[in-house]
Nucleic acid binder design. Structure first.
Lengths: 239, 239
DNA sequence: ACCTGAACACCGTTCAAGT
DNA sequence: ACCTGAACACCGTTCAAGT
């Protein structure tokens, strides 16, 4: 009687369980064996519903993208894009593993295509040319430099004690000597109180800032009738 | 005599070998055991030079960041940032595994700090406030939406035959029905020849486009004397 | 100081077999 | 149609021992 299971497995149940497990233990902690155990099933049972671990991850990403909102037409195309993108961001924040998983995938599932199509539609309806829309879509996805930018946002170790004034002093001295420019920024960001360096930085603000720089640049290009056949894209922007 | 090894291991040799191995087989193929084998050594020998695999990856990322150029002062701060960022990009492209490895790391090694400091210095010297510099640094690192944007750039399977005209037709029909906006963009990008969809998209151009949108937006904020205490960052940009 | 051997607790995935 | 058992070829990492 211990072998009775009420609901038989299916792809959807497997994916949902995988998402829940990853929410709990991260991608690194997600294994086929552990997922099977969570489902009260032997590891090999999963392979009837998912080809391999890669496909499992693709499916999990689809689940997250399925949570994105695509709100109706707004007044301004920038607001329409912003609404979609911020909704995507909220979904990704709900699943801490999702950002990395998404960025490591390359498969273009229908879910991905549908979302891209929705954003592209807002841009085109807003009067951007297909050419400009194409480049803006790319711009939205480009990470400009090649290293982790979360200098200050990284979650501080909860168990670690807060830095003593002496440690702060030492840190400031080290920064001022070796990384003076970073110190200048840190001081501005924390209004002089370096102890707030961790949680003091509003990630949401930074995200909107980058987004608005891109959207506003695109709006200016649109007004100027920009096309990518122009020799140098920046030349059009410069007054 | 088979046990004689000319040069004893050290941290640097281990990291270099790891980078070379990852260049060859990717991060997924990089294991402590395989790296040890490459070095003609038993797996456990590595642990004298590297605490664990995490630290190995941190070290590998440092090697790549060490390849970034930090050219001397230029005429315009935008050119200074562009030079650094494009050099970083070239280094990352030289090591296909690096982008993902970098984005999954969170450790702030001295190498990372030194590079950030260098970029921050260019911005500050260019007359941006510490406040604006802070946000621009974040903007440069923000990926705006949460999925892999390489819709068209993904390397095509080399072994796969080129699509027949019939397949192209079918693909266009599918796109026009389900993803009409994506079709519009693809047509613009390939000048109507959908068979060029793979290699037809100039990734370098897209990168510079996004970069220039950000840099030019920052320049406009600088001229306007923008500060982040303004209620809505986009308000300043809108004319 | 640097490397080794044996062992532990894990992985993803195969195959043939069960119900 | 769906699940299981046993097995294979891997992992990262420990510990105590060798030279």
């Amino acid at each position: 009687m211990a072998t009775v299971r009420r609901t038989p497995l299916n792809r959807d149940r497997v994916l949902r369980a995988a998402v829940a497990l990853a929410d709990e233990v991260g991608v690194a902690g997600l294994s086929m064996r552990r997922l099977a155990q969570q489902l009260g099933v032997v590891p090999m049972a999963l392979y009837k519903h998912v080809a391999d671990k890669e496909e499992l991850l693709d499916g999990m990403v689809d689940v997250v993208i399925g949570e994105f909102d695509t709100p109706g037409p707004g007044l301004d195309w920038r607001d329409g894009v912003r609404a979609r993108v911020l909704s995507a961001r909220r979904a990704v924040l709900r699943h801490p593993w999702a950002r990395q998983a998404i960025e490591s995938r390359t498969r273009r599932t229908p879910t991905v295509l549908a979302y891209m199509n929705s954003v592209a539609g807002v841009l085109l309806d807003g009067g951007l040319s297909a050419d400009l829309t194409h480049h803006v879509l790319h711009a939205l996805g480009n990470r400009i430099w090649g290293f982790s930018p979360e200098l200050f946002d990284e979650p501080r170790d909860e168990n670690a004690p807060p830095p003593t004034p002496e440690q702060q002093q030492a840190m400031a001295a080290e920064l001022s000597q070796r990384y003076p420019h970073i110190l200048a920024i840190a001081m501005a960001a924390t209004e002089g109180d370096l102890s707030r360096v961790g949680p003091g930085c509003d990630e949401e603000f930074e995200f909107r800032f980058a987004l608005d720089l891109l959207l506003d640049g695109a709006e200016r290009l649109r007004r100027g009738g920009w096309t990518s056949t122009a020799a140098d894209p920046i030349a059009t922007l410069r007054d």
